[in-house]
Design a protein around this nucleic acid. Sequence first.
DNA 1: TTGTACGCGTTATCAT
DNA 2: ATGATAACGCGTACAA
Lengths: 342, 342
Amino acid sequence: MSSLVEVARVAGVAVSTASRVLSGSDHPISAKTRARVLAAAEELEYSPSALARAMVSPHSRLVGVLVSDIDNPYFSVIARGVDDVATRAGHVTMLSNVDRRTTTEISRLQAMRDYRAAGVIFAGSGHVDDPETPRLAKAVRRAREQGIRTVSLAVRDLGGPSFVVDNRAVAYDITDHLVSLGHRRVAFIEGPPGMTVSLHRREGFLSRMAEAGLAEEALCVPGGFDYQAGHAATLRLLARPPLPDAILAANDEVAVGALSALRQAGIAVPKEISVAGMDDLRTAEFVGLTTVSLPLYEMGSLAARHIIDGADGAATTVLSHRVVPRETTARRPPAACSPGAA
Amino acid sequence: MSSLVEVARVAGVAVSTASRVLSGSDHPISAKTRARVLAAAEELEYSPSALARAMVSPHSRLVGVLVSDIDNPYFSVIARGVDDVATRAGHVTMLSNVDRRTTTEISRLQAMRDYRAAGVIFAGSGHVDDPETPRLAKAVRRAREQGIRTVSLAVRDLGGPSFVVDNRAVAYDITDHLVSLGHRRVAFIEGPPGMTVSLHRREGFLSRMAEAGLAEEALCVPGGFDYQAGHAATLRLLARPPLPDAILAANDEVAVGALSALRQAGIAVPKEISVAGMDDLRTAEFVGLTTVSLPLYEMGSLAARHIIDGADGAATTVLSHRVVPRETTARRPPAACSPGAA
DNA sequence: TTGTACGCGTTATCAT
DNA sequence: ATGATAACGCGTACAA
């Protein structure tokens, strides 16, 4: 590992001169000197220490992302968006899984702060009435005071700018799709209890049902965000007939779990029952699931871009989503034996 | 941001003393002094600069992972394994997508080297006869000379230790499963051309078929590693009857693509044709796909552990895999009209 | 047991 | 146009 002083020595110039040439300063340098420095750097395979650089700068060129779980496609798409932008801008991505624990978020934020990250992205949803939120908010404030940018990709009260999707509208719109297909009794498999995103999605669902005069037909059942939750919830639904006209799941993976339970029970989708999810992850495409497409990649890239060259501020940007009808939803069969339709 | 000097000043001691108590040195310190330093640190919310620390250490506490694409579950599971271990050990994970490009691997390795990473993990497969490999190998060697540990999670000639799976055996074993079910004509949808993993898996497949005296019945068709590839390859298979008894896909996602093409064509799985994949990612479980389970999480965590506290060396550890039969494979129907069985 | 002083590699400031 | 030097924050060898 050759350092700047060695390059300077080989080139026969002062370190400051070498620095100016190698760091792309606009300081005037004679062509001859520049060439010598460049040659020396080349010869020594010089590569500047990002550590030393960060020491004398307001921050490093590290971009942090806090995800609930990178092994969840929702977050891996976001991470991909972040990294693409970061890499193109000469930065490096730091990643941490926080498993939806606010205390973990705090400690990981601190860890990234210790490296003087250029910024930290909060990709996951927060909890409703989380007693730890004040502590997190305080840690975030401190980080910001120190010059670390922060961005949220979910509705959270953290102070920085945020790039989000309107989860109420997302659920509202997909529910609308179901309702407009003639479905009346629709079951909603909820997300993990206590999470803001779960709450919003349920509100959106309920809201559209109420507007359609179907408040009585709306059925919310506890679920989660994974396959098992969808499978189990559907089994419970199956155990208490009559079957709803449609099932709306809190996300795609839950919907796939529902689909699988339905298939095992020998119930035809969408002939006997419609199923829809939200997020539009790859799995949704694989199984032909009707869902709502979210600009996840864009959220990640926008967040990274903000950190790298954005202006300060705390504006919230609501990105648009799109219902994508596929093969798991269809018009409600006219002869369905659904009570309450009298 | 309070630094060590401020803590020392508040505590009324020298920086070296503060450093010793705060950095957990084994240097003897009087209980009284220790308490005062701790109190001062607490009061000032002191958190050591990881940057400055790394400057005076042989390396930072950053663990790098180079993946082909984090939005590919294969790699996100590995990344999860890496991060869990890294976090528990007080390190932070750096992640970079390299899109299977060796030149990108080189430049990302360099970027992580600039941060004096404790180590860098190469998670992806290499290419056969890759002209860039020497350059990468050289970069890796230099990194190692500098004290950066490197680990491979695929068979590559990079010099460090590696934690791998025997892809020939993986393909051999799942082919064995198919053959033992009575299948004779089996089509193999290959992985991306030129990748080592593709080659090994094909070899394993061909090897088991040959041993079963089924060399003539083995059919290799070009594919890839994604859904589209599996779908398209299966369509091509469908266009040229007779249908094989079974389809083995280079990985799970390809198998799902095949499954979907088969379903659209109205061909029953596993009644009319068996389908199997490799990797055992979550999708495989969702669709009940027969596949081979790989210790991906373990590979990631072992790699991280090696970087953090492993011994030097270049040993190759071959981890075991396991065929997991599910619902997409079944015994070959006795009355199948497969020619060549005469 | 505690303190002093140096070095890590870079950029910026202030001479020259 | 170039050079010398301070500063970033920490750990540590050496001195007391």
